[in-house]
Amino acid sequence: MQLPEPVQKLIDAFSRLPGIGPKTASRLAFYLLRTTDDTAPALAEALQALKANTSLCRVCFNITLSDREICEICDDPRRDRSVICVVEEPLDVFALERTGGYSGLYHVLHGVLSPIEGIGVDDLRIQELLDRLKENVTEIILATNPSMEGDATAMYLGRRLAGSKVRVTRLARGLPVGGDLEYADQNTLKRALDGRQTLERG
């Protein structure tokens, strides 16, 4: 038996989402079919509003409300405008914001250089980043993921920025806080050793 078309269409739509397989997709679809309250309409409304009411910040390309040209962070006068932290995705901005330890600006690349997926320099917001250097920036923090592609992107940006006066830094890597040395994998431990720091004598 074939499923009625509307149900199958929803299952297919869910299946296209990251992290959702065909089984989860059908479970979600049938759950929505069963609900009598406003779960389904609310979801539909939220989905529609998602694209309609958001846009990208003109400066840092983080997501923001569609009635704003620049995002809250770029607009905030208390922010340190001399430091830019470069991240892969908007979600990374929120992760860094949660730390409460960073008061500079951001720049969202919307991806990484990935030869396998065919993503090159022109597919990312790299030129836009270079254009921002004119605004008295003194430091660029490269906060792409510590993966092969993330490292490749960071190294590429590092080289592009080498000629300018800005200081270019890369996020440190090593042991997780509260972690256990014996459980750390070899590569992480080796990086932690390489990046060891002198203990301040008080």
Partner: peptide, 20 residues
């Protein structure tokens, strides 16, 4: 190799090769 091919087909900045 994927990057070399991409640079040939679509051109682009060869400096991307440095890391690889």
């Amino acid at each position: 190799n994927a990057l070399l091919k991409q640079l040939y087909e679509r051109s682009g900045d060869p400096a991307q090769l440095s890391y690889w």
